[in-house]
């Protein structure tokens, strides 16, 4: 798994005005267009592209793309 590719995929789930601000370390919950729908899209894209289902309670603990990346990597035992 490559962090840059992963970040690019997650970035696309944000509305265009926020996409340039998205990095692997930014707290995405603080972006102006963040809401539960964005969360759903992130969970869905990870499920279909990486085969990892993140339970909603675990997802709520994650603040940035690096958290997500590490979680997915651990689950896939890459």
């Amino acid at each position: 798994m490559d962090l840059n590719d992963f970040t690019e995929q997650i970035k696309l789930q944000f509305l265009e005005e926020d996409q340039p601000k998205v990095t692997s370390e930014i707290d995405f919950r603080k972006l102006s267009t963040w809401d539960s729908l964005t969360g759903m899209a992130i969970i869905a894209i990870i499920e279909s592209e990486y085969g990892v289902t993140i339970p909603v309670d675990d997802f709520k603990e994650m603040r940035n793309i690096l958290d997500l990346f590490n979680y997915v990597k651990y689950q896939r035992k890459d």
Partner: peptide
């Protein structure tokens, strides 16, 4: 969340 996953 479940509906979104199902649909996608």
């Amino acid at each position: 969340q479940a509906i979104f996953s199902f649909t996608s």
